[in-house]
Design a protein around this nucleic acid. Sequence first.
RNA 1: GUCCCUGUCGUCUAGCCCGGCCUAGGACAUUGCCCUUUCAAGGCAGUAACACGGGUUCAAAUCCCGUCAGGGACGCCA
Length: 476
Amino acid sequence: MSQTKPPRVRFAPSPTGYLHIGGARTALFNWLYARRTGGSFILRIEDTDQERSSESSYQAILDSMQWLGLTWDEGPAVGGPHGPYRQTERIALYREFAERLIATGKAYRCICTKEQLDVLRKESEARKRPFRYPGTCRNRRDIPADVPHAVRFITPTEGAIGFDDLVKGNISVQATEMQDEILLRSDGMPLYNFGAVVDDVTMGITLVARGDDHVINTPRQVLMYQALGYEVPRFAHLPMILGADKTRLSKRHGAVSVLQYRDEGYLPEALLNYLARLGWSSGDQEVFTIDELIQKFDWVDCGHNAGVFNPEKLRWVNAEHLKKRSPKEMGDLIEPRFRARGFDAGSRERLDSIAVLFRERARTLLELEESAAFLFKMPAYDPAGVAKFITPAIAPAMDELLALLPGVTPFNHDGIKPVFEGLLAKHNLKMVALAQACRVSISGTTVSPPIFEVMEILGKDETLARLKAGRAIIAV
RNA sequence: GUCCCUGUCGUCUAGCCCGGCCUAGGACAUUGCCCUUUCAAGGCAGUAACACGGGUUCAAAUCCCGUCAGGGACGCCA
């Protein structure tokens, strides 16, 4: 019957660092599912680890989500009927739920200190036995509510706890593998498992999708839902994303922050497209628009095994999406980046043209800017290019080109081309010889977009000036 | 160590649930060729995988068992 209500899913990062690739994918899958089903996507900040949480991380996460376009229906900045959406602002709630469990005999107060337990933990480790809380306080009823204490959950000592995972299928864990979990720390902060459960029930979450590093937590949480008397939501656990060395993705593997991909000139839809295909597929399709992703996404099509992050393929996907953007959009994308570099395109129309002309050989906006830089400031000549193409043999043709170009109108591809062709025939030259001599003169290098287009976009005066300077390299 | 999950080209994956259409398909990367004013892009062709061992079956990448390998979890972290 809960199937008839629109789904409510959430993404619940902790602000202990930037939003990384793995988190972004979890957020994406939740978001896609909510958008396809007409459900709600909730953003919740799990900041109960006050040691490691920071305001700047919180901001970075929000910025990342916004840049990716993963809009949330409820959460920080937008509010909603189940707020607040930061766990540190919900402390009273966890206390209330914990007391309720104590009152019904499903949890108890515990005054064992971390230090005492660490000693026991060490011993277990030394004996190569798994550590379990020995239950020291489990049956004590003499611990008053006003001394510092943690609250522990009473975990059954036998039987198996299972759940049906939407991507992994049936998973079941023996009760003997679990222990009396801490619900509330002695400072009143909830632990992950408890905070998540309390929030998920009070926020009406119907499906919990997260990384599969949480699989083992799920049975404990199922127990908590039951103890609290709530319906257990559905679960979907996504496989991890690994680095090239098949270990968990981290800084060692290069860029992992979403914002860094933005800065390096990736398009949000490209990053999302790539992330979606890492761990999910829809037949043989590789390139998707966001709308297609929304339409086609489903948990059953998620893979079961961890995937290696492949930056090369991301670049390819990015190039594909770059080609889909309109000239106007390309201009919008490149405008702030040009400004930051001090590149002045002069007019908006020219800016758009530059973006379109250079994107063909760029996989990221960063590559685009770098390859277009010569338009704004003549770089040093590539010595090898000069040696190979700016030779005495080409001098006569260049001289003549210099004489003819001023009279060319319009100064564009169609106007310039016939001039070159005439010269080629007259001097018995190949196009490559003259074009490369011009290219090196104009861009400093042997690589650029088609040279007539480059001349057009550079303008007649600047083209002539650079050609003259190039011609002057040739002795005589 | 214990428990959980996973194992198809170098990488992401299709196929697996409902064995035969799989001499295992696609994509990135890579190699060669074509196109070409350079470099890209594009086109064409190629190299390249069912972890291993047992079963079940007329038939197994697909079902079962074991081994091995990888990942994850074993916190008053999330």
